[in-house]
Design a protein around this nucleic acid. Structure first.
Lengths: 172, 172
DNA sequence: ATTGAAAAGAGCAGCGA
DNA sequence: TCGCTGCTCTTTTCAAT
């Protein structure tokens, strides 16, 4: 399914450091990991090509952009068939208010994280873009008080005490 | 509350481009926006100081790290008081499986996005880290089929046809 | 695969307009 | 506020180990 990706401790440490600060230079990276800068570059490029690193995203403060209110909308799309949900997702993704769309199991089909200016804006969004649609059977709105990003994503530790290096799925 | 932040069309275009690829050089940025590279640097630094740009995040593929299964856990914490929820959030954030924690309105207090290896791993996580805790009154697990990040975050367009530049809250 | 050194390129400050 | 010039640091390449 995925390309062969083998991550040794050097790769893991680089990933961990870059997730803490994606702008760390190869020089600093090299110093902290204990290899040459050119080796770091090589590793990072390999992680890129291997699809482990998908890209670099700018973290922006929604409040400073006039979107101080965020919410999660649980949406039921009926009937839940490809010809309906495909366009639904694309339409939602195109909304300037949308941040993330989750397709999930359970009674509600989608969870949509949105960032809006204020309550009036949220009301407008829900009414105009969700409940007014025929394929949208139900919308439940939960406001987001606060949101925390968690620590760097790392491979799970092997529960059986196997070597710490993680080996991805192979597909030669 | 926030510093004075005024965003003109140049700032907005820079933000839009950087959200697509945060590693775009000032030179390329300048070429696409139509100003001098030094101006781009100046603008970006201002956006940094103004708190609009919070930092740079590395986007990583969880599946390539052996965390091919993601889920959203709705968690009810009872009693929902500061002395309980503070430590709860910190404990959850420290879990290597946790990606994002939302504090939300509604019957469930928290939404926790987790990335695990497989179903057995998810079961272990729910049982050991959530339902076994006394302050956790209820956990509802929804699996994530798929997840989409949406377009760049931009200021809302003014509904009254005012100038397109967005002016943040002032506090001189 | 990793390295050090050298070349190419980008970041950054100062200055003049 | 903008754009130019020049210096410094980073990134990237490459031959050798």
């Amino acid at each position: 399914m995925t390309d062969s990706v083998v991550l040794d401790p050097v790769d893991l440490e680089i990933l961990r450091l870059l997730q803490n600060d994606a702008r760390t230079t190869y020089r600093d990276l090299a110093a902290q990991v204990g290899v040459a800068p050119s080796t770091c570059l090589d590793r990072v490029n390999r992680l890129r090509r291997g699809g482990v690193i998908l890209g670099h995203a700018l973290r922006v403060d929604p409040a400073r952009l006039g979107r101080g209110l965020q919410a999660l909308l649980s949406v039921q799309v009926r009937p839940h068939r490809r010809e309906l949900v495909g366009p639904f997702v694309e339409r939602i993704r195109a909304l300037p208010e949308a941040r993330t769309v989750f397709h999930v199991t359970g009674p509600d089909d989608y969870l949509v994280q949105v960032a809006v200016r204020d309550m009036a804006d949220l009301q407008r969004l829900v009414l105009d873009e969700f409940t007014s649609r025929r394929e949208v059977a139900r919308v439940e709105t939960r406001l987001i008080f606060q949101q925390w990003e968690c620590g760097p994503l790392l491979p799970p530790r092997d529960p059986h005490g196997a070597p710490s290096a993680y080996q991805g799925d192979e597909n030669p």
